[in-house]
Amino acid sequence: MLEIKNLHAHVEGNDILRGIDLTVKPGEIHAIMGPNGSGKSTLSYVLAGKEDYEITEGSITYNGKDMLDLGADERAAAGMFLAFQYPIEIPGVATMTFLKTALNAQRRARGQEDLPTPEFMKLVKEKAKDLNVSPEMLRRPLNVGFSGGEKKRAEILQMALLEPSLCILDETDSGLDIDALRIVSEGVNKLRDPNRAMIVITHYQRLLNHIVPDHVHVLSRGKIVKSGGKELALELEENGYADFIDEEAA
């Protein structure tokens, strides 16, 4: 469903991605691991359609469609979802208004009717409960005053509500304590589905104990330098990234 070919991206004259190839099939979970500065977050932003990056080579095809021609909102409507590493606070935008606008915008883009407000409210309450997102949090402006854990839970709530076909989780474990990590992981696992794929970007192996991947890729200096099964993550935990960094430098 997702095919990334020879993807090169740069920002302000620096090459960040230097030839990424990755194929993701429905139902699969791919973990992308790598040291800081390897291009993990850039890959997630480029997939989601952030405009700060210039794509100099390569392609991103999703369900047969060229994504590079589409804006971020069109990619979201096509089924892509990025759970942000640092969800942004937007004072003045009510959380519920935001959720409703996002959901209905995607429905419209797919030619569906808006979800009637009572049904929408019911849906949000249901999903919020699963993720331990309190009604009080939903009354606040978007992400404003949320703790790190609350922000990550709110991201997963958005994901559960929008039901994307491809979830990209960017360092979803960062800033989470063990309990929060468990709640967030359970929320993600609930969304596992034969028709839904996930790309889990993480620095540490611990998230992968909760969200077990089918494939693990190591990203270093903008390239995937090694791919394997879930055991590769354990190997990395043991030996660190030093091998790959050295390999590249040599």
């Binding site: 989601a48 359609g49 952030k50 405009e51 804006g71 971020a72 909102d73 990619r75 979201a76 409507a77 979802f81 990025l82 942000f84 969800p87 942004i88 937007i90 935008v93 935001f98 606008t101 996002a102 959901l103 915008a105 995607q106 883009a109 958005q158 929008l162």
Partner: peptide, 11 residues
Amino acid sequence: LLFYLRARGIP
């Protein structure tokens, strides 16, 4: 902020 909203499908 604009990217965050657009990434959720808002034109």
